Computed example of a mutant assay.
Amino acid sequence: MEDSVTAVSDGEEVETLVTIGSYGEPVRLVRDSSEEILLLWAIQQPTLSKQNAFVFQSSLKLELEACGHRLIISQSPSSMSTPGVTGAVMWDSGIILGKFLEHAVDSGGLLLRGKKVVELGAGCGLVGCVAALLGAVIVLTDLPDRLRLLKKNIENNVTENDVLGSATVRELIWGDDLDSELTDPLPDYVLGSDVIYSEGAVTDLLATLKKLCGIQTTIILTGELRNDVVLEYFLDAALKDFIVGRVDQRQWHPDYHSSRVVMLVLERKKIKEGLELDPP
């Protein structure tokens, strides 16, 4: 984390802005999970915004312009009837993350070309496709039963000669030991959309994030604001090991933002002589 700047209004401290990891724009430093939840639900008022503003979950295909390409993402709406299966269709948070990556690279806030990236819970694969188009060497991961659709979308969208990066697909169950392809070397970036969905999954998610992250790794997560209890549980646990910031919507792609979605950027707290150093 780089030096912080505290924004002041009428003589009162409002928020602390910092740069976290390799994301070059200042973000709001999250210090307290309950305070952050209060701000998100009271100020953004997510329930008043339209749900699924950028997706069509009943359709077999979703088309999106990104990085000068027309991506065609196959979906499997019928799979949504299976309990626990949400990655068979696209969600707004995935669209927003993909377009954010494009916008951040174009504006100089991110550099993805030649960088190693791991995506967690890749689902239909749109975010990974965008990252590859931007030059990343990305490994998209998900549960075993999600890989067929994921591979299909990668093969259909990341095969052209003018794709700057590359994309591969690997099975990953959060909490399990990691394949060396994911950790040697550790990734420059870890991405995830809608990966904070239940308290039961948070422990395994954070365990995987800690294994994936070195001191040079930047995590970018987006999620839909559905359950304040689950998000507070995640933030409370994450703050023990990570510096956490919230990305202001003014830094997102101007055409892809929603009060129902939050974007977080994280990096591991530094370790010195066996002791973690808290942010200033």
Score class of each variant (00 low, 15 high):
Leu40Gln: 14
Leu110Lys: 10
Ile196Tyr: 04
Glu155Pro: 01
Asp176Glu: 09
Thr6Val: 13
Asp204Lys: 08
Asn227Thr: 12
Arg260Asn: 08
Ser49Gln: 14
Val85Lys: 02
Ser259Asn: 15
Ile215His: 14
Leu205Glu: 00
Tyr23Thr: 07
Val105Thr: 00
Lys99Tyr: 10
Glu2Ile: 08
Gly108Pro: 01
Asp10Ser: 06
Asp194Ala: 13
Arg148Leu: 07
Phe100His: 04
His69Ala: 04
Asp255Tyr: 07
Glu2Thr: 05
Glu273Gly: 06
Gly123Tyr: 00
Leu60Trp: 12
Asp241Trp: 06
Ser76Ala: 15
Thr86Pro: 05
Ile73Phe: 08
Glu232Trp: 07
Asp179Leu: 05
Glu65Met: 07
Val27Tyr: 03
Pro26Gln: 10
Leu40Asn: 10
Leu140Cys: 10
Met263Val: 07
Leu225His: 01
Ser58Met: 11
Leu235Ser: 06
Phe234Leu: 01
Thr208Arg: 02
Arg113Phe: 10
Leu239Gly: 01
Ser78His: 07
Leu186Lys: 08
Glu181Ser: 10
Arg113Thr: 10
Glu15Trp: 09
Ile138Cys: 11
Asp255His: 05
Ser193Trp: 10
Gly200Gln: 02
Ser33His: 11
Val247Ala: 06
Pro185Glu: 01
Leu266Tyr: 04
Ser22Leu: 02
Gln45Met: 14
Val265Met: 01
Leu112Asn: 02
Glu273Phe: 12
Thr203Asn: 00
Ala201Lys: 00
Ala88Asp: 07
Leu111Asp: 12
Gly135Ile: 06
Ser49Leu: 10
Ile73Tyr: 07
Leu133Asn: 07
Arg246Ala: 07
Leu40Val: 10
Phe234Asp: 03
Thr222Cys: 03
Asp204Ala: 02
Leu147Ile: 02
Gly24Thr: 05
Gly214Phe: 00
Thr86Ile: 02
Glu171Ser: 03
Arg146Gly: 01
His257Ser: 14
Leu39Gly: 14
Ile37Gly: 03
Thr19Arg: 15
Glu160Tyr: 06
Ile72Lys: 15
Asn227Lys: 10
Val139Asp: 03
Leu206Ser: 01
Val89Trp: 04
Gln45Leu: 15
Leu147Ser: 08
Asp145Pro: 07
Tyr197Asn: 04
Leu164Asn: 03
Gly11Ile: 05
Asp184Phe: 09
Leu120Val: 02
Glu35Gly: 15
Glu155Lys: 12
Leu225Asn: 00
Ile220Thr: 00
Leu64Asn: 12
Asp179Asn: 05
Leu101Met: 02
Glu25Cys: 14
Gln216His: 10
Thr19Phe: 07
Gly165Ala: 05
Ser180Ala: 13
Glu13Gly: 14
Gly114Asn: 04
Ile20Gly: 01
